[in-house]
Write a protein that binds this DNA or RNA. Structure first.
Lengths: 291, 291
DNA sequence: GCTATTGACTGACTTGTGTCAGGGAAATTT
DNA sequence: AAATTTCCCTGACACAAGTCAGTCAATAGC
């Protein structure tokens, strides 16, 4: 009886089902029905527009209205008209509501910390969880334009450099690669995109503009747990679209044969190989694409 | 913003929560309430005693009764008195019930197969899922006595030999290790235990008896995804208990320094190192324990 | 300005889920 | 043989969750 893939998958399903159930149970321990708790949490996570919350939780408009009224009666939430459309409403937590939200957060955090603490190899467990979460949540990965200097972007870039250092036989010193002024990757000259799955950054790509019609694609990175999910294609398609709206007509990029999947990606996306266009010591492949 | 462990864990939680929710939704697609579907599945999985089902699903006796009556009214289940205790009842699926159960199974299998098929590295995904499932389900690991010749046991032994082959510099040929007659690992001479998590075998250990007061512990194996969870201690404690009930007073075992965690385990469990007691070519450490 | 649409709210309703207090039959204890 | 316990069933009830039709106010389109 070699365990077959489907039964291994389903064993996983049963394990997480009972885990999810247990978390729901501990939520109920705070004396509030689950639906109400879910709305409270959605608001706490920063979703203020009622329509957005309803959409996120998949609730009927009537039910949503009643749950909100319940939270208002408890003094946890206040609602008011949307500043830009007085038909719509926004909900915000009162200080009491913030405290309740924090209590729910603490319950979840505690469960997570307990499970991690009980495991002999928490880092391996987390890596496995990242992989599973990326696989299950691949349809919920969103792309966001970010300032390349903010904390999240710097995390992505740091991971990118670490990956290069591992891949290049000679190692990699980010100082040596011409680090563009970050402002070249900010509109209107350029752009910097980060891919998020449920708040976790999984990839990035930069468009380094020069003010003219030619720009460079830089810093394409995909987290190991998210590779193979087609994320690099999505990032490339989106950054090309941004380039078009910025009036750029020619895109260039360089890469290294130590990254064969990158070379294959660019070829597959219709880039044509061209001669070296800079004297950066690391790249050995150069591509161009006309928009 | 380096993602911290707890937020990575919670991202995983959200991903599987929506996965579980989606599976529930597809179950509801068969037009039966979730509670009813769960009972049907529990019966289909081979749980026939009503009390056992109730316990497994955590249901109130009244609710359970009503759900069963509903399934009977649909013609999917028949109930009758328990053969050994006429107060208790057992439930079995009718042919229609079997068909419905199969339809639910097919839904789950389909979801699993789809997700696996969409992933670029299904084997890596499954390994990650095994690891996560073992971590979350560590309290639900059960030990069962098995015939060492059955399919499940042979799977464990095969994994055990494969592990030795990887670990030993010289490789490992199971033919060379004196393979005891399997009957030596069956009561009343010995025993063979397999650890299961939700149907998946995660470890094993054998007690090879000789008919006398001395017996040998053999074939202690733990699946990679379940290491560090204390399973080896549980298996050893249980096999020692079996040895006691079989009247065995002295236990021996041999192992190899290429398996340092095994050597450490035996020392930690109160075994004392002794001189070589066989001429098997592989082991270089020998232990004994008086019960 | 008039009309149609959108977003939220309300009341009435259904269904699912879970609890509780008994009741009857079988098993066990005294 | 009587009393007690165990197991399941039943009816009554409560509440959560979700649906639906209708209402009202704000907005958008003409």
């Amino acid at each position: 009886m070699t365990p077959d893939p489907v039964s291994r998958f389903r064993r996983f399903s049963r394990a997480v089902t009972s885990e999810v159930g247990a978390l729901d149970q501990s939520f109920l321990g705070r004396g509030r029905p689950l639906g109400t708790a879910r709305v409270l949490n959605a608001i706490g996570q920063g979703r203020t527009e009622v329509a957005a919350i309803r959409d996120y939780l998949g609730l009927d408009s009537g039910l949503m209205s009643r749950l909100l009224r319940g939270l208002e009666a408890e003094g946890l939430v206040t609602t008011g008209p949307h500043p830009e459309d007085a038909r719509a409403r926004v909900a915000v937590l009162t200080p009491d509501g913030e405290a309740e939200f924090a209590a729910y957060e603490a319950l979840s955090d505690q469960r997570a910390a307990d499970t991690l603490a009980r495991h002999p190899r928490p880092e391996a467990l987390l890596a496995a969880m990242d992989l599973v979460a990326s696989a299950l949540g691949r349809d919920r990965i969103t792309l966001e334009e970010r300032d390349p200097r903010d904390e999240t972007s710097r995390y992505c870039l740091q991971e990118y450099y670490a990956e290069l250092a591992r891949r290049f036989e000679t190692g990699f010193d980010p100082q040596l690669s011409r680090d563009p002024e970050a402002t070249d990757m900010i509109a209107p000259r350029g752009a910097f995109l980060v891919a998020f799955s449920d708040g976790l950054p999984l990839g990035c790509v930069g468009l380094k503009g020069s003010g003219g019609p030619v720009a460079e694609i830089k810093r394409l990175w995909i987290a190991p747990s998210a590779r193979g999910l087609g994320l690099s294609k999505r990032l490339m398609a989106e950054i090309e679209a941004r380039a078009r709206t910025l009036g750029i007509t020619t895109l260039r990029l360089d890469t290294n044969s130590a990254l064969p999947e990158a070379v294959a990606l660019y070829r597959g996306l219709g880039w044509t190989e061209i001669d070296r266009f800079n004297d950066d010591p690391y790249p050995d492949h150069f591509f161009e694409k006309h928009l």
